[in-house]
Simulated assay, not measured.
Amino acid sequence: MRQPAGRSARRSGGERKPREERWAELIEVATQVFYEKGYDGASLQDIADRLGMLKGSLYYYIQSKEDLLFDVISAVHKQGLEVVRGRADVPGGPLDKLESVIVGHVEHTCRNLVPTAVFLHELSALPVERREEILGSEHAYQGVFRDLVEQGQAAGQVRADLDPRLAALSILGSTNWVYRWFRPGGTFTPEQIGAEMAEMAIRGIATEDVLKARTA
């Protein structure tokens, strides 16, 4: 998180909330407003009104609306990346780890529908260089999936004829789409969706020997 110079633990004078708490509230409110109105339709005045503060006070934290969108999307990406990296750090072979990552990604998406929608819808509103700053030159999030596919190929668990990047994009594309149709309290739970999508993805890339072993 970027922090304005001179930010201290608490606001001065009559300000009531610690600055880190206010910053977290700003990110949460901005995320909701961008979700409801879209980046183009949202204004800093909308966000300030929702926070109950003067528009001018926002400039203590940010320099522009684009600056705020950058911070919102950065926060979403960072949280998701922490989830998938954590889920990759489990015992087992590459496909065990990939299955864990897919389940974690899907469950995280289902439980964070609004931030996910803002990330997927509004990332393109940022200039290319700012998008790359968030995603990383190697697209770190996608890289977790791609690396596990490559490791699976090296271990003889994933079909050698597959392109790891394309396989990773296919898995991410299908799992990302969950945010469009998942409804909390609906027919399917995040756990069920994650488990079934992971099973379908693994079956789509695994070697015949692995598939036989999984059904044995």
Rank of each mutant, 00 (worst) to 15 (best):
V84I: 13
V84W: 05
W177G: 15
L126R: 06
V83L: 01
Q142T: 10
D163R: 01
A125V: 13
M1Y: 15
P164H: 05
R11L: 08
N112S: 08
R10L: 13
P18Y: 12
V83K: 08
R180F: 11
D147H: 03
L123V: 00
A167K: 03
A198C: 00
K212E: 10
G104K: 03
I171W: 02
A168D: 03
A167S: 08
L123W: 10
E25H: 15
I62D: 00
A117C: 07
S8D: 14
W23S: 14
Q32I: 13
A125P: 12
I102D: 01
G13K: 06
P190I: 00
A88D: 03
I102N: 01
M53L: 05
H121W: 10
H105R: 02
A216H: 10
N176Y: 05
G56T: 06
G104W: 01
E129I: 12
L166C: 15
R130V: 07
A201H: 11
R131T: 01
G86V: 11
R22D: 13
V103F: 05
L120D: 12
E25Y: 09
I62Y: 13
S170E: 09
L166I: 10
A168Q: 02
V83H: 05
V76Y: 15
E196V: 09
M53W: 06
V72G: 12
T207V: 12
S174G: 05
S170P: 04
K212A: 08
E66T: 13
I73G: 00
R11M: 10
L123A: 02
L98V: 05
Y60L: 08
P94Q: 09
Y61V: 15
R183L: 07
M200C: 07
L120P: 05
L126M: 13
